[in-house]
Design a protein around this nucleic acid. Structure first.
Length: 724
DNA sequence: TACGGAAGTT
DNA sequence: AACTTCCGTA
């Protein structure tokens, strides 16, 4: 590991090693597709169309060409690409929309977009540029949950892995698009910016603009880890809730979607603060979407502004704001005030409307530009298509960049509280246990040592949130192997938890019935010392540098449970269907970009915190309480949502078909609840969730920076590989 | 145009 | 594992 020193932190060594598994490391087709979908430039080639998650390949040859370029497979053609897409059918990542040529549909239900909640969803009908799949809107509301970018979507794991210190690298990677490059995974470079090497403009811009903040992360890190993620990790089912679309999206009052930055990769965002919250929320949302509650009133821009934030600094003020926001949420949503006990100083604000925010600084701009440039250079793109919109957007399309959108800014959040419906959300969920990544774990740890484990595996952790709501969860999966899928991250909201370590949480959805109860909190810390946690910790630390917050998310693992036997089509179908629109009342809430709420649970969520490793992580500033051990708590949430249940049920059933038999074993429902340890990744059913954020914890500058970098990087992504 | 088996590659 | 390549079938 490297230590980051002031700058960043580094990930453990293992993190750097290239993974051996090739498959995972390289960019995956669905990531790529998502990436194309999110870019307006490619709307002529591929675009969201139809139902939620449905997209049409308008120019198959071009898409194939692009894909081939990315993968350095010049011989690629649509026939081959489509074969690859067909393989997704069984994985349940995609489905074919029958009757429509070149039309496929993402099964977002299984994805956990948690990480990438910010997709903008355009409503289908709108002309809006779609970065996001159209949401099914019943109501016309938009939700944004699907990830807008592939990169965003990328694995959480990656994110996690990425060393904080490496932001740069990470960012880069991200920027690249998920990865990749042709040659090897490792150094990639080629693309866009690449690190530093060449590229003048881009880089320059990057630096300038983003800087990412202060500092920019800079450096290049070349070695990066390759992320590997399995789809599975990304996909999970959110409960059947299914509906992905359901979530209330964030649509402003105006109805317009926000698009925060499309690029932003949140997944990573470690920010605890608002950002975190935002993130978390979303994650839940899909699953929970219906359930309202959220804690997150304070939502920064969807993208996580904080990250962007170049300016965002974590200071008392911010914190305060953040907390207040939460507080409001509590009020509004009927959350338990207990959550706030920790923060005595905070004043609970009365609900009020959020002011509009301002935009953020535009840190991204550079990236965006860069990206554009890239494209331009490379391709002719721009096909003439009917979308008028995109042409225009060309320049703008990245909101953040040139024109900051009001919405986009992270820090500002708008609170919609006033509007929100009081109702409490009923659903319950449980935190799921992270998958275990045992592989790596290793030895290091001491038995349970949570502290440092560097092993490669994944960590899981999670935290809780203040209101109880946001919990994030994470699971670990093994990073190294990729196979594992889930992952997670956590953030903590309450301070106490985090300070030292990351709190970990698991969230499991509970399926059915049981639930009513409130959330249970359990102390997990000791429970699983497993690897996952460890890993998780590591990440956390590294990422944040600070022990506190982290939220990350993650997602879940595979979704997979499949019953081989299921015939399922019907079920599947359901899965794919658009979810019902969220209750109106909720919408407002949702409106905020982030605001997804998670459930509202009333009690404090459980969290588990682990002791972090102080050493590495040492946060630059504000070190929170030194790692004391925080109290690790494990919480389980149960969630149930009345109506939703059904949906989930259906989903569950639908779960997979052929895919991975193993996973199936899970119990899915056997109990209704699962525990962390138990399950792993898979539950298809379960949803996932996670949430999280943190609150109090102090945000670390590092995180921010990282975020910023990521943003930038993301912006830079290029879809094609130049190198090849 | 789409599906999916089989074998090969990384 | 995740495609890529090739191909027969519908």
């Amino acid at each position: 590991m490297k230590t980051p020193g002031d700058n960043g932190f580094a990930f453990p060594d293992w993190a750097y090693k290239p993974e051996s598994s090739p498959g995972s490391r390289q960019i995956q087709l669905w990531h790529f597709i998502l990436e194309l979908l999110r870019k307006e430039e490619y709307h002529d080639v591929i675009a969201w169309q139809g139902d939620y998650g449905e997209f049409v390949i308008k120019d198959p040859d071009e898409v194939a060409r692009l894909w081939g370029a990315r993968k350095c497979k010049p011989q690629m053609n649509y026939d081959k690409l489509s074969r690859a897409l067909r393989y997704y059918y069984n994985k349940r990542i995609l489905h074919k929309t029958k009757g429509k040529r070149f039309t496929y549909k993402f099964n977002f239900n299984k994805l956990v977009l948690v990480n990438y909640p910010f997709i903008d969803v355009g409503s289908t009908g709108n002309g809006v540029p779609q970065s996001a799949p159209p949401v099914p809107s019943g109501a016309g509301t938009h939700f944004r949950f699907p990830p807008s970018t592939p990169s965003e979507v990328l694995s959480p794991n990656e994110d996690l892995r990425s060393p904080g210190g490496l932001y740069g690298s990470l960012a880069r990677r991200v920027a690249r698009g998920s990865v990749s490059d042709c040659s090897d995974g490792t150094s990639v470079n080629s693309e866009i910016e690449d690190g530093g090497t060449g590229g003048g403009e881009d880089r320059a811009e990057r630096s300038a603009g983003g800087g990412g903040g202060p500092g920019g992360g800079g450096g290049g890190f070349r070695s990066i880890i390759h992320p590997r993620l399995s789809h599975e990790s990304l996909f999970r089912i959110y409960g059947g809730a299914g509906n992905p679309g359901a979530h209330p999206g964030s649509r402003g009052p105006a109805g317009h979607r926000m698009h925060p930055e499309p690029l932003s990769p949140f997944p990573v965002s470690p920010l605890p603060g608002p950002g975190g919250a935002g993130l978390l929320a979303p994650p839940l949302s899909p699953a929970l979407s219906m359930t309202p509650a959220s804690h997150l009133a304070y939502t920064p821009s969807p993208t996580l502004s904080p990250m962007l934030g170049s300016h965002f600094s974590f200071n008392p003020e911010d914190m305060k704001r953040y907390l207040q926001a939460h507080t409001q949420s509590v009020y509004n949503y009927g959350l338990s005030p207990r959550a706030f006990l920790q923060y005595p100083n905070i004043v609970i604000p009365q609900p009020h409307r959020p002011a509009a925010d301002k935009a953020g600084p535009g840190g991204d701009r550079g990236a965006a530009e860069r990206a554009e440039r890239e494209r331009g250079g490379e391709r002719h793109h721009h096909a003439p298509l009917p979308h008028s919109a995109h042409h225009h957007h060309h320049h703008q399309h990245q909101p953040h960049s040139a024109h900051p959108h009001p919405h986009s800014h992270p820090l500002h959040h708008t609170l919609h509280l006033g509007e929100e419906p009081p109702h409490v959300s009923p659903f319950k969920f449980k935190l799921q246990p992270p998958p275990l990544g045992r592989k790596q774990r290793d030895g290091q740890g001491q038995g349970k040592a949570r502290q440092s484990s560097l092993s490669s595996a994944s960590g899981s952790g999670s935290m809780s949130s203040t209101s109880g709501l946001g919990s994030s969860l994470s699971f670990g999966s093994d990073l190294s192997s990729a196979s594992g899928s889930g992952l997670i991250s956590a953030s903590s909201s309450t301070q106490s938890l985090n300070s030292a370590g990351l709190p970990k949480i698991k969230v499991e959805p509970i399926s059915d019935i049981e639930s009513e109860e409130e959330v249970e909190v359990t102390d997990i810390s000791d429970e699983d010392p497993d690897e996952r946690d460890v890993d998780f910790e590591v990440f956390a630390h590294r990422l944040s540098g600070a022990p506190n917050q982290h939220h990350h998310q993650h997602l879940l693992s595979n979704g997979s449970a499949a019953h081989p036997s299921l015939p399922d089509e019907d079920l599947d179908e359901d899965v794919f269907k658009a979810p019902a629109p969220p209750p109106p009342g909720l919408l407002p809430f949702l409106a905020s970009p982030h605001g997804y709420s998670t459930g509202s649970q009333r009690g404090p969520p459980a969290l588990k915190t682990e002791p972090g490793e102080p050493a590495d992580a040492s946060p630059p500033r504000h070190p929170p309480p030194p790692q004391t051990k925080c109290i690790p708590l494990k919480l389980r949430f149960k969630r149930r949502w009345s109506e939703d249940q059904r949906m989930e049920a259906s989903q569950e059933e639908s779960d997979d078909k052929k895919v991975r038999p193993q996973e199936q074993r899970d119990l899915r429902r056997s109990n209704g609840r699962m525990q962390i340890e138990e399950d792993g990744p898979g539950e298809a059913d379960g949803p996932l969730l996670s949430a999280y954020q943190s609150s109090v914890g102090q945000p670390l500058p590092a995180h921010r920076r990282a975020s910023a970098d990521l943003h930038r990087a993301t912006a830079q992504l290029s879809l094609e590989n130049k190198d090849c």
